[in-house]
Design a protein around this nucleic acid. Sequence first.
DNA 1: TATATTGTATTAGTATTATAGTACAAAGGT
DNA 2: ACCTTTGTACTATAATACTAATACAATATA
Lengths: 130, 130
Amino acid sequence: MVKFILDPSGGIPFYRQIIDQIKFGIASGNLKTGEQLPTVRSLAVELKVNLNTIAKAYKELEILSILDTQQGSGTFINANGIVLSDEEKQGKIQDICKEFLTVAYTYGFSKEEVIAELQNNNLNNNLNNK
Amino acid sequence: MVKFILDPSGGIPFYRQIIDQIKFGIASGNLKTGEQLPTVRSLAVELKVNLNTIAKAYKELEILSILDTQQGSGTFINANGIVLSDEEKQGKIQDICKEFLTVAYTYGFSKEEVIAELQNNNLNNNLNNK
DNA sequence: TATATTGTATTAGTATTATAGTACAAAGGT
DNA sequence: ACCTTTGTACTATAATACTAATACAATATA
């Protein structure tokens, strides 16, 4: 369960703020595998935006296999390990690691520095149901 | 020294492709600290775009303290460690690591998995002059 | 100090994106 | 079966982003 909030300043589109909050919710363990998200209508009313704005966020995450949505029943956090094959997982982890190292090196950090910081970081998804 | 290329398909804006290529050039060691980049005019001619498109890329990287530009002389790869204070560096590494872990966890990877993959990755910026 | 070379600023046109309004369609519950 | 609840599709509009044309300003150098 996550409390969604929208910041109209800052120029970040509403639908992207929702995407980011869902991603962070999963990463932090506040959203668990199988958990149902608010319906597009209820969240739209709560956040005072159009339901298509919510639907757009959900849809992008569904394309990424992060959410699982069925018309009539609702939208749920996907059991991500199931839908990605081993090959896809291997490719994905390589992609995100390469991207991350590129950014890190660009800022002048070494591999050792970022690994140390990662080990020190206490963001933890241990509430996740996997 | 880096050979720039633009891919008009794929929908990635030209200025962003240039940004990405500079970032990757630094990360891979092909662009060294202090090295001069092509002038906005010469690169614009070479890539058949307007000089403002190049200038936009350079400017974004200058805001990030990745490039250093002076009217009249040109644009150079910045000695990044010099312009960021220790506090700024510490904040930056925390930011990028938190962002990275969020993405990794969202895809179902553990901290141990991504650290192992990072150690296995051979992207290396050891040609960098720092 | 003139001139060439460098990045910057202003403006405008086009394309894309973000958001909303409204109608549609699928699934579930009664 | 019906009706409610759910997401989806289509359309329109406003805002934003991208690129370009052109003029300006700062620096280097002959």
